[in-house]
Design a protein around this nucleic acid. Structure first.
Ligand SMILES: [Mn+2]
Ligand SMILES: [Mn+2]
Ligand SMILES: [Zn+2]
Ligand SMILES: [Zn+2]
Lengths: 128, 128
DNA sequence: TGATTACTTGCGAATCATTTGCAAAAATAC
DNA sequence: GTATTTTTGCAAATGATTCGCAAGTAATCA
């Protein structure tokens, strides 16, 4: 575990929400280069120390977001208004995924699920 | 509905699987430019005539895939080996999404879910 | 029908997240 | 310490997607 990788991992584990590579790079600015951040994120994901998913946000476009793997695998809601993530808790679709595997003979190695819309605060801020 | 848009829509509705913008552009090659294809896809999605999601495939990277909206909203499995999609049928997580809305006060306007791994054929082709 | 206005297209250049080549730096092996 | 392997910084390349702008079509009006 090199200094750069440790810094990236610590940033991820210290964050309450998923972070984009750009966000991580900003957080470790001065410590390591953006290419190093991308390489470190790949490394951490390979080692099972981080998880990622690709999210599309209408305003900010498509980006990959990373989460430290210190907590169990989970899913997220993304607010398209304030751009915060809300933790949906531990994965609740494991059973459904297994059903698909059985029904269709698939070997599922990875699943992606996320919701987007308006969080409670942003929804309250507009029409009730 | 212009000629270009009609060609793109017909391509989507005629396809058994989600198509990338590049795939659509190849299918309508000669008929219209790639920029026009992208614009037509946006137009169709705005009009509710197509749906899309962003998928990450280890080998081919991140791309947006489109489906004609002639069938009800559904989800897909993507085989990382043969790169085909398998239809998982009509959405089965509507209830779960509503639960999250209630529990957390969210207003969910869109959800993304897909599985990836090996399809039955590709799984059989390797270790049983 | 011809002129006016509004929307769509093609082409090429620009964007933006992400990746890569390469030489220097750091870590590990001998 | 010296040789060997791995990691890093920097700058340039990549690839999907978007944009500017002039030309092409369609719709509207006199
Ligand atoms: Mn956002
Ligand atoms: Mn694929
Ligand atoms: Zn919000
Ligand atoms: Zn397959």
């Amino acid at each position: 575990m090199t200094r750069a990788r440790a810094a990236v991992l610590e940033t991820l584990n210290g964050s309450r929400e998923p972070m984009s590579a750009g966000g991580v790079a900003a957080a470790v600015a001065g410590c390591c280069d953006q290419a190093t951040v991308y390489r470190a994120l790949h490394y951490l994901e390979d080692e099972g120390l981080a998880e990622s998913f690709v999210l599309h946000c209408a305003e900010r476009g498509v980006e990959r977001f990373y989460v430290g793997a210190n907590a169990p695998h989970r899913h997220w809601f993304h607010c398209e208004s304030c751009h915060r993530f809300i933790d949906l808790g531990a994965c609740r679709i494991g059973g459904l995924v297994s059903e698909f595997e059985r029904e269709l003979g698939l070997r599922v190695s990875r699943h992606t699920m996320y919701l987007s819309g308006k969080c409670r605060d942003c929804a309250a801020r507009t029409v009730p």
